[in-house]
């Protein structure tokens, strides 16, 4: 196995226009993802954590090129994703998959289980019976009963729907799976089942996960490394054990202190007054802003002004 990271994201920026002038030109932007750089090693689980609106999901969609970034680069398995042509993208789509948060939204209500699971399978090169066999194999892999193939999404529970989503993603034999809040719509007993299934699949298939969640207890269960996002930037990144035991950035501390429920002091600034917010917390901008925590080369944190942060979000 090569030592090159499976995924390398450099200076990724995504700005959404929020106002346009008479000629349709954008005059104001929101920076949903602002100059993010990170790497994901093969076989590991990198967790992205942050409150809603912090840009986690946008980053996930950028990495998979479901939306086009404003600037930056994404390298995946030796491939320049953003510079890929149609054929290369097709190859990328087979290797990188996504599981969504809402199991009710992520399955077409008009399709049966087998059609959903087989959606990504290539049309050619497989006979009908081979496809059926493959579907059965995948359903078994995610521990769904065989008759799930003939059921419609509404006939499943939330957890079963999520298993179906996982089966659909695994149908193309991916090596990398983005899980966008995969369990936050499920009740707690289902959560642990799905999380255990995901870990089990990771071991068996050698998957690499980019795992997005706002729930620190879920992250603690899943992550090898943690990246904390706030206002579109990564404010702290490091090994999970290290970040959990020694959170440096006040935002990380806030998140951790709020386990299991997320009660952050103050209100998050809207991304619209983002510049003001960044000025208020006194963080440096630019890719060089992450600095290693002393004695911990893997543990990086964005610089920040302690007093400004307290004024910005308050103390919990």
């Amino acid at each position: 196995m090569s030592t090159e990271p499976l995924l390398t994201v450099n200076n990724l920026v995504k700005r959404f226009p929020v106002a346009t002038d008479f000629f349709g030109r954008s005059t104001a932007f929101v920076s949903a993802v602002d100059d993010v750089s990170l790497q994901v090693q093969r076989g590991e689980t990198l967790a992205l954590v942050g409150e809603s609106g912090s840009g986690k999901s946008t980053l996930a969609r950028l990495v998979l090129r479901l939306i086009e970034p404003t600037s930056g680069s994404v390298r995946f398995d030796g491939q320049d994703v953003l510079g890929s042509n149609k054929g290369q993208m097709q190859e990328f789509r087979r290797k990188a998959q996504i599981i969504f948060q809402d199991p009710f939204e992520s399955l077409d209500p008009r399709m049966k289980g087998e059609v959903i699971v087989a959606e990504g399978m290539p049309d050619s090169g497989r006979s009908k019976s081979e496809r059926k066999a493959r579907v059965a194999e995948l359903l078994d892999l995610v521990q769904l009963p065989a008759d799930a193939a003939r059921r419609f999404p509404h006939e499943f529970s939330g957890g079963q729907r999520q298993r179906l989503s996982i089966a659909r993603a695994l149908a193309v034999d991916p090596i990398f799976v983005v899980a966008d809040e995969p369990v936050s719509a499920l009740d707690v007993s289902m959560q642990s089942q799905i999380l255990n299934l995901m870990r089990d699949l990771q071991d068996r298939l050698g998957l690499t996960y980019l795992f997005i969640s706002h729930d620190m207890s879920v992250i603690r269960h899943m992550a090898d490394r943690v990246a904390v996002m706030y206002l579109g930037q990564i404010v702290e990144i490091g090994p999970a054990v290290e970040v959990f035991s020694n959170p440096v950035h006040p935002y990380t501390q806030t998140l951790l202190s709020a386990v299991p429920s997320l009660i952050v002091g103050g209100t998050p600034p809207t991304l619209l007054d983002y510049e003001a917010a960044r000025a208020a917390i006194g963080a440096c901008t630019g890719s060089g802003s992450l600095q290693a925590v002393s004695g911990q080369p893997d543990h990086m944190v964005a610089c920040f002004g302690e007093d400004a942060w307290v004024r910005h979000r308050g103390r919990m």
């Binding site: 479901l66 996504i98 809402d102 939204e105 193309v172």
Partner: peptide, 23 residues
């Protein structure tokens, strides 16, 4: 999300329109 999932699976646009949008 199911449209986004189809895009992530590399399903071509015309097929997404025929399979998901029209029905």
């Amino acid at each position: 999300a199911f449209i986004e999932a189809a895009r992530a699976l590399g399903v071509p646009s015309w097929k997404i329109i025929v399979r998901h949008l029209v029905p």
